[in-house]
Design a binder for these strands. Structure first.
Lengths: 157, 157
DNA sequence: AGTACACTGACGTTGCGTCAAGGTAT
DNA sequence: CATACCTTGACGCAACGTCAGTGTAC
C-alpha cells in the first residue's frame, strides 16, 4: 500500500524572539545566548536585523537544558553529552522516515533506545543518591518524633 | 534518681590534616579551605605550625556539604541555610543535656523537629522534580520499546 | 639534609549577571 | 520621532582549580 508522497504541510510556525523564549522557559536572555555560545543550541534562524528567532523545538530543548541544570545539577559539559543523545535521536527519526528497509529501520530504533537508556541511567543515578539523602533526613526526623512522644508519655531519656 | 555527674571521658580523638580529610570526603583541599573562607566550616583546631586539624564531626559536616553540592546541586548560600539547621540542632542537644526542665526539653525537641522538617521538605522538593524527569525519560523509553516490538512483529508505522 | 605536606596569596575557569554603546521594528 | 527590544562587547561574581613562594614535620 503506497500513498502519494505529499510533502508535509508546515503550519508556518510562529518564531519567537529571545525575550519571549526567556519568559516561556524561565531562563534569562543571557543564559540562552550563552548556551548558543557554548554550542548547546543554535536558534532556528535570524531575522533581517539579526534578531535570534526560535521555534517550538528550540523551546523544548531549552526547557530540557534548564531541567538538567536546575533539577539534576549537571554541568554544561554533561548537558552537552545528554543533548548529543537527543541530536542522534532527531537525526535517526529523519533517517527512519527516509528509508523503507526494515533492517535499517530496526537499527535506527535500536540506537534510539540505547540513547534513551543512557539518559535514563544518568538521571536514575542522581535520583538514587538523592533518595538516600532524603531517607537519611527522614530517619533523623523519625528519631526526634519518637523522642518527643516518649517525652510526652513522661519518660525522658 | 541522680547519678554522680562524671564528665564524659573523651577518647582523645585523632585529628586529621587537610589532605586526609580530602581523601575521606572526596573533596579537594582547595574546596575545604574555601568552605572555611565562606564560613561553612571552622576546623576543630590548628597545629603548632598552623596546620588545619579536623575531627570526626568536621568530616560528617563536609560529607553533608558535598552531598548537598553534588547530589542536590545547592549553592553555597542554600547549603549555608541547611547547615544553620544543623547548628541549631547541635546547640539544642547541648542545651537539652544541660537542663532538667521538661517544658524546656520539650521545646528544644520541637525546635529540632522543625529544623529537620525543613531539611526534609527542601530535599523532597528537589527529589520530586527529578522523579518527574526520570518518569518523562522512561516514558520515551517505553514508546521506543513499543515501536521496536511492533516493528519486530512486522507492523512498522 | 631531604621529602612530603601545609600555609597564604593570587591569577585562571565556568556559568552566567549586569551594564554600556549602538542598531532594529517578527 | 519615540519606545521597546535586539545586537555584540566587556567587566563582575561565585565556586572553586591551579600554580608560586615559603614554612613545617599532629
Amino acid at each position: 500500500v503506497k500513498t502519494t508522497d505529499v510533502p508535509i504541510e508546515q503550519p508556518a510556525e510562529r518564531l519567537l524572539r529571545i525575550q519571549e523564549v526567556a519568559a516561556e522557559t524561565g531562563l534569562t536572555t543571557r543564559a540562552v545566548r550563552y548556551y548558543e555560545e557554548v554550542g548547546l543550541l543554535r536558534p532556528a534562524g535570524r531575522s533581517g536585523g539579526d534578531y535570534r528567532l526560535y521555534d517550538a523545538s528550540d523551546i523544548e530543548r531549552l526547557q530540557y537544558i534548564k531541567n538538567l541544570r536546575d533539577v539534576a545539577g549537571f554541568s554544561i559539559a554533561e548537558i552537552g553529552d545528554l543533548l548529543e543523545d537527543e541530536d542522534v535521536r532527531a537525526r535517526n527519526r529523519v533517517a527512519y522516515q527516509a528509508t523503507e528497509d526494515p533492517t535499517e529501520r530496526r537499527r535506527l530504533l535500536t540506537e534510539n533506545l540505547e540513547r534513551v537508556d543512557h539518559q535514563v541511567l544518568t538521571l536514575r543515578a542522581k535520583l538514587e543518591r538523592l533518595e538516600e539523602m532524603v531517607r537519611d533526613a527522614e530517619a533523623r526526623q523519625g528519631r526526634i518524633r519518637a523522642k518527643l512522644s516518649e517525652h510526652d508519655r513522661g519518660a525522658p531519656s
